[in-house]
Amino acid sequence: MAMAYPYNQPIEVIHNAYTPQQTTEIASRMGAAKARMRIDKILTSGFMAGAILAFACAAVSVVNTAPWYQENAPGVIKLFAALIFPFGLVAIVLTGADLCTGSFMFTTISTLHRRTSILQMLQHWALTFIGNLAGSLFIMALLVGYSGILSDAASTKQTIAFATKKVVAPQWHQIFLRGIGANWLVCLACFLACSAREQVSRIMSIWWPTFAFVILGYDHVVANMFYIPVGIFLGAPQITVGLYIWKSMIPALLGNIVGGGLFVGVVYWYLYLSSGDAVVIDGSSYGGPPMALFGVNADAEELPSQQRRESDKATIV
């Protein structure tokens, strides 16, 4: 029996990623959902994100303890650190935890899209920041500091040197500019993750922008919530809490807001959502009922009266 393909019928379309416009719409919906969470859940989500990222930072601190390579091949150590660190952001995104730095993008888009208020946006920023700090300090003190993971002489020396390099060596404006670069890449990773339809693509889309941020040595305010306090905990002579807040936390935070909120959030909202047109995601408009999409109409919104017909599905007879 000969096989005949029904060319007169539309074929079913399978897309392996969302379009940039759909991705921005997804980010806007996520920002609205995150900003409307209960306060206790935002704090808990922020705590978990800070703790997870602190684990990644601790792993990098162990990798950094390689005196010969630090002297003779520092790029090799940066490479290993950049390959390891992204697992933290991957775990955060896949578990739905909230970094304040990611909120700078998500809630900026949802606020510009008029789905959340400025007050809701700022509240989410503040609560996730507090949660991130609590989670980072919890891991730093109890599971790294008092547990003695970095208490040997080589690890202590390298950890203190790394914290000192982060705070003492650069000028205030340099940390601010590094903060812009850091969260531009981190929020780009989160944005690309919104475009993926399955986990492997989501993981890979997160991994490489985060890899770039780490290997370039940029300053991420939440990552520094581990790196600098653990240096203070281990006795860094040139770093005080006040110096950390003024010279590292504030400029990195402001830079992260600009990098994630402006260069990712504002830019992609302007490019794809500022027109005000409704964007359909898998057959569902924002706030509307879900509708199944199929065939050549896979990117078009169908009227509620239209019914799915089996004849529209590609078949081989």
Rank of each mutant, 00 (worst) to 15 (best):
S136N: 07
A193Q: 08
S110G: 02
G242E: 00
D312R: 06
I245S: 05
V221E: 03
Q171L: 09
H173G: 12
A51V: 02
E198P: 00
E301T: 11
I250S: 04
A292M: 15
L293C: 10
F226Y: 15
N297Q: 14
A314Q: 14
G261L: 12
T315H: 15
Q9N: 09
A35E: 05
Y270E: 03
A35L: 06
G31R: 09
V221S: 14
L43G: 13
A134E: 08
G265W: 06
A91M: 15
F106V: 03
E12Q: 13
S311E: 15
I281W: 02
A126Q: 03
E71Y: 01
S248N: 15
F85V: 10
L185Q: 09
Y227W: 13
V241R: 00
M1V: 06
I239W: 03
F55E: 11
F106S: 05
Q171R: 10
S110Y: 03
Y272P: 00
L143Q: 06
P20C: 09
Q174L: 13
Y18V: 00
I175E: 04
W68Y: 15
L216W: 02
A182Q: 11
I39W: 15
L99V: 01
G283N: 02
I52E: 04
L303M: 13
M140N: 12
P86Q: 08
C194S: 08
L143V: 11
V317N: 15
V222N: 07
I118G: 01
T23E: 08
P304S: 10
I92M: 14
Y146A: 06
F294V: 11
L243D: 04
S274V: 02
L234V: 04
P6W: 04
V222L: 13
R38V: 03
A169C: 02
H113Q: 08
F176G: 07
A298V: 12
G242D: 00
Q70T: 14
W125I: 03
I239H: 03
M37A: 11
L271C: 13
A58V: 14
P251A: 11
A35T: 05
M121I: 04
S147P: 09
Q238R: 05
S195K: 07
V267D: 01
Y270I: 04
R114H: 13
W172G: 06
N183A: 07
F85L: 14
A33H: 10
A59I: 14
Y69I: 15
S195F: 06
F55P: 08
F213V: 10
G102D: 03
T107C: 12
D277N: 07
Y18G: 00
A278M: 03
I215H: 02
H220Q: 05
F211P: 01
A300W: 04
S305R: 08
A56S: 12
A212W: 12
T65H: 04
A189W: 01
A292W: 13
S28L: 12
F85Q: 13
W172A: 05
